[in-house]
Each structure stands twice: as structure tokens, then as C-alpha cells.
Nucleic acid binder design. Structure first.
Length: 429
RNA sequence: GACCCAUUAGCUCAGUCGGUAGAGCACUUGACUUUUAAUCAAGGAGUCCGGCGUUCGAGUCGCCGAUGGGUCACCA
């Protein structure tokens, strides 16, 4: 906001969430005393203005002020008016200032709200039921991640902040809700970066009698629809690249993707010697004894992920890294799973859900072994969940989307902190 | 966790070879009845991130530390 005082008449702009308008203030409209009060206003003060609308000589629509009332006084000076607030640390810590001073920040968070609205509308229209499941868990399951631990005083037990929505939503499928989703906050006690905040928003949905192919169709249609609803276009600019979200998106298996980008054909690789040789051949030295599936995933992450700029579904993930996904009938080393990559980032993860309680128990046991071997991110055994599976879960397709990363893409934001209003910050002394 | 960069007025930033701390905006005072980052004149404003060291003398050089940012590593 600006203020231009010229003796006995002045101009200023006032601003609210809908925009700004110029006001014109004259001494012979207000009287001397009121006009002096006006001149003593500061840039951040909040005022009410009454008067008639007119157009100035230069053509700007303005208000000829008849009455101006101070509604709230600003005691601290606002940041400088044309360089604004640049200090990223201060912007995140004092988001209120950032929002006042930097209009594009306001716009980003309006888009965030619209994206979330559009996702809900899409799913509600298709008969999905939105539910709320617990955030405090007795066992942290549904993903590979280190949880935050907290304590319940009355029960005198430690509890975990959820790291995924998955296991409760599957219980609802077992309970007979055929289409459910939840959009909510997830907590992971891991490193922070431009792509990671300790708490972030995820949406997970589950559809009974669907498989991962159905979910792939839904995913691309939903993201396309959201982009059209919010931006009015399926073409998105992201850090100098043009991303086209128009379906149908590229689909390839992990084995195909690895073969295309590295020349390694994992269908021809079998023995441990083959694996070591293959990894060495493309310059990956990994001395941990890796299995076939782990090696496939390792090569994919190291050599392929970065190349996936346009929307791409990677399918058929190794069973070792997919403890909740159904094994393929044609190849038990792989699962009916896909992940969606856009601008080299994982945006979604989905599979035909494992609904065989015996197989699920074995997967959990395998995970527990990793856990005791020191892998803090391996899944915990969850007897309660297996018990639920034993009741009988229909074949189900499930999907998880990192909502923050989707919003980063749609708002061309470099850092996850730019699309979370109050990102996690280290306290200051 | 490693490396690189930054930290000077409320904000955005200069500060030369080591020699009295600077600008614009904001603020205060004055002039000005159609301005658009209004203009003009004057004024106040500092723990130069902290500590230690080198030096006659440190915002500037060295070491240690803090905070932030970036890159990488780790991580769905």
C-alpha cells in the first residue's frame, strides 16, 4: 500500500483480500482536524472509508473520501515497499508479513485451497466417502518411515503419529465401505529438504473390486481434471519445463524403464554374480548384499527416476519393497503396483492391495527381520491388521498422492515450504 | 552429516588496500488540492550475528561457534 500526500489533498491505496482501490482525500471534505489525522496514518494501519466512487484524470477508479475511520493501528513498520520481504527465513516464520507484502504468495495459497477443493469434488462426485481415521496410532504402519513418538498419560503408553493412512482405510473396505478416501496430515520423523516437511498432506483412496489398472486410469483423470478446474489448462510450467498433463500418460514397467535408460535387462539377470556385475557395469558400487528386486529398484532410483519429466507411470515393483501390494500371478518377484513420476518426483503410489492374510503375515515377518537388523524404517508387525484381513477383504485398488508435491507442480513452487503456510522451523533464541 | 555462500538501520542492500558507519524505502518535521514507487528540503535512526585472536587500529584478516540458504548424502 502507498500513500501520496500533497498538501491539502492526498491519494492512497487501501487493500483487502479482494484487491486494492485508490482513495482520494481532501481537506475541505474531511475538515482540518480529520485531515491531519489522515496524514498521521501509517502504511500498515487498517481503516474504513466512506465516500462516492469516481474516476480520476488518469482514469483510475477511486473513492472520494467523506469519512475515514481508523479501525486498527499498526505499531510495527511493514517491510520495505518495493523490495518487499526477501529473507526466506523471515517469510516462513512471519507468514502474516509475507502474505501482506507479497501478493504472489497469497495467490499460491488460494490455488492450494482450490486444488484441495477440486480433489474432494472429483471424488465426492464419483461416490467416494470421505472419512477421518486416527492420527495417534499404536503401531505406525502403512509406509516405510520413522515415526514421531508421543505419550498418552492416562493409558501410560507411547503412541505414534501416523506415517500413512493406509491400514485404517483398508479396515473400512473390510467393513463394507467400497469407496473411501481421506485427505490428511502425515508425520514422518526424517530429514527436511526442499521436497520434505516433517508434516505433510496426503490423500489416500481405496476402491473395492478395482485393481491397479483402474486406479491408474483414475489417477490420470483426476490430476488432469484438477489442473483443468484450477488452472484452466493441462499444460503446466514448472521451473522452465512444460509439463503436459493430458491423458493418456506413458506407462512402462520398472524392468522396461531400466532397460530403456541403462540397457540392463533384468529379465536376463538371475544369479547374485549377475547382479553384482550388472551394478558394477553401470557404475553403482553397493557392497550390501542386494536381492534381485532391491537391485532393480536401486538401478531405477539411481539412473532412471531423474529422467522421468513428463507424467509417467512405472509399474510392477519388486515384492521386497512393496510389503502391502499383491504379488503378480505371472511373476511372484513383482507386484501389481505403480508409482507416478512427474519432473523426476514421485507424486503417487498405488497398488492392487494385498488381501491374503497369510501372505501379509509373511511380508510383515520379512519386514521385522529388516527392523531387527537395524532398518528403522521397516514396517512393524501389525497383528490387529492381519486379524482384520482374516475377516476377508475384497480385491481392492488403493492410491496415495502427495498433495503438497502436486500443489508444488501446479503452482511452480521450488520448495515445499512455499506451499505450506507454516512450515516446520527450528526455534530461534 | 559434508561442502559452498550469506548475516551491516524496521526493510532491501552498498562498504575500495585494514584508517571517523553509508544509500534508498520506512519514520519525524516543513512545502505542495489529481497522485501512481508522487516530488522537494531537513532530521533521528546501528551489539556491523557472537566470542577469541592478529594489529597502533578490524565491518574488512585468522580461528571457533550460532542462524539461515544452496548443493550433495540420507530418506518414500
Amino acid at each position: 500500500m502507498t500513500k501520496r500526500v500533497m498538501g491539502r489533498a492526498s491519494f492512497a491505496h487501501i487493500l483487502d483480500s479482494l484487491g486494492q482501490i485508490q482513495i482520494y482525500v481532501q481537506v475541505n471534505q474531511l475538515g482540518k482536524e480529520e485531515y491531519e489525522d489522515f496524514k498521521s496514518l501509517d502504511i500498515g494501519d487498517i481503516v474504513g472509508v466512506r465516500g462516492n466512487v469516481f474516476r480520476t484524470k488518469k482514469g483510475e477508479i477511486s473513492i472520494k473520501t467523506e469519512e475515514i475511520t481508523l479501525l486498527a493501528k499498526s505499531l510495527r513498520p511493514l517491510p520495505e515497499k518495493w523490495h518487499g520481504l526477501r529473507d526466506t527465513d523471515l517469510r516462513y516464520r512471519q507468514r502474516h508479513l509475507d502474505l501482506i507484502v507479497n501478493p504472489e504468495v497469497r495467490e499460491t495459497f488460494v490455488i492450494r485451497s482450490k486444488v484441495i477443493q477440486a480433489i474432494r469434488r472429483y471424488l465426492d462426485e464419483r461416490g467416494f466417502l470421505e472419512v477421518d481415521t486416527p492420527i495417534l496410532h499404536n503401531t505406525a504402519g502403512g509406509a516405510s518411515a520413522r515415526p514421531f513418538i508421543t505419550h498418552h498419560n492416562t493409558l501410560d503408553i507411547d503412541m505414534y503419529m501416523r506415517i500413512a493412512l493406509e491400514l485404517h482405510l483398508k479396515r473400512l473396505i473390510i467393513g463394507g465401505f467400497d469407496k473411501v478416501y481421506e485427505m490428511g496430515r502425515i508425520f514422518r520423523n526424517e530429514g527436511m529438504s526442499v521436497k520434505h516437511n516433517p508434516e505433510f498432506t496426503m490423500i489416500e483412496l481405496y476402491q473395492a473390486y478395482a485393481d491397479y489398472n483402474d486406479i491408474m486410469d483414475l489417477t490420470e483423470d483426476m490430476i488432469y481434471t484438477v489442473a483443468m478446474d484450477v488452472l484452466g489448462s493441462a499444460e503446466v510450467q514448472y521451473e522452465g519445463q512444460t509439463i503436459d498433463l493430458t491423458p493418456a500418460w506413458k506407462r512402462m514397467t520398472m524392468i522396461e524403464a531400466v532397460k530403456e535408460h541403462t540397457g540392463l535387462d533384468f529379465n536376463q539377470i538371475d544369479s547374485n554374480e549377475d547382479i553384482v556385475k550388472a551394478l558394477k557395469g553401470i557404475g553403482i558400487e553397493d557392497h550390501k548384499t542386494v536381492t534381485w528386486g532391491e537391485a532393480l529398484n536401486l538401478v531405477f532410483e539411481e539412473r532412471v527416476e531423474e529422467k522421468l519429466i513428463q507424467p509417467t507411470f512405472i509399474t510392477e515393483y519388486p515384492v521386497e519393497i512393496s510389503p502391502l501390494a499383491k504379488k503378480m500371478a505371472t511373476d511372484p518377484r513383482l507386484t501389481y503396483r505403480f508409482e507416478l513420476f512427474i519432473v523426476s518426483r514421485e507424486l503417487a503410489n498405488a497398488f492392487s492391495e494385498l488381501n491374503d492374510p497369510i501372505d501379509q503375515r509373511e511380508r510383515f515377518i520379512a519386514q521385522s527381520r529388516k527392523r531387527t537388523a537395524g532398518d528403522e524404517e521397516a514396517h512393524m508387525m501389525d497383528e490387529d491388521f492381519i486379524n482384520a484381513l482374516e475377516i476377508g477383504m475384497p480385491p481392492t485398488g488403493g492410491l496415495g498422492i502427495g498433495v503438497d508435491r502436486l500443489i508444488m507442480l501446479l503452482t511452480n513452487s521450488h520448495s515445499i515450504r512455499d506451499i505450506i503456510l507454516f512450515p516446520t522451523m527450528k526455534p530461534r533464541d
